[in-house]
Design a protein around this nucleic acid. Sequence first.
DNA 1: TCGTTTTATCGTATATTTGCGATATAGGAT
DNA 2: ATCCTATATCGCAAATATACGATAAAACGA
Lengths: 112, 112
Amino acid sequence: MAIHKKEEFSQKDQELAFFAKAISHPARIAILKVLAEQSECICGKIVDVLPLAQSTVSQHLKELKTAGLILGTIDGPRSCYCINWEFFEKFNLEFNTLFKSLKAKSENNSCD
Amino acid sequence: MAIHKKEEFSQKDQELAFFAKAISHPARIAILKVLAEQSECICGKIVDVLPLAQSTVSQHLKELKTAGLILGTIDGPRSCYCINWEFFEKFNLEFNTLFKSLKAKSENNSCD
DNA sequence: TCGTTTTATCGTATATTTGCGATATAGGAT
DNA sequence: ATCCTATATCGCAAATATACGATAAAACGA
């Protein structure tokens, strides 16, 4: 694909797409659910719960971290992750805004 | 990657990931916005608006259609697309449910 | 110090996504 | 019938994503 064209779209659309991509794999959704459930921000326990190899889980955690959805701190020999709730709110809001704006736009027409 | 493991996750997580993937590219978000704005469910006008080749746009439209987010009808020599609002509501609700359930789970702990 | 445990990263294989040009198809106009 | 327009699909190339095993790094205990 020569050069990918993603950067030619609006910042907002790129950001939304980026957010959506962060949760576009069931493993990452499952990880978020586990993190939300656990009182301690467990680490390798996620590996036990998911049907994936340790290295693969680590990769998904890295992606969620890059996206901003989770925070990771080193705790001795292990890593401790938890949901970045502050960011999560922004994330949530962003989706709601998209959905609302689409609906709002549609109110001016009678397409459906 | 030998065999991809997506099907080993819960139906719900797979569905959510699938939904997220549908809007994980700025072109598809842009298409949804255009469709929501237009009073007639335009077709190739989308190509004019997006910085992509006709064939690429057609492919994104197909993906949105496969995901269920848009409907396409043939209108003479051209294709007419519009947002599938009924499905859109389900889509919207699914995300809200995920976000709410994550927050609800977190209320039992003090991780953050 | 040496081994153990835990996790990140590297290298690699394969699958999927993205993108485009070329072509096919189908309807409408002349 | 022939041409034109609009769109879908095919074939291909390149980029990304997914997955794993092997290995590296880091902290802890014996």
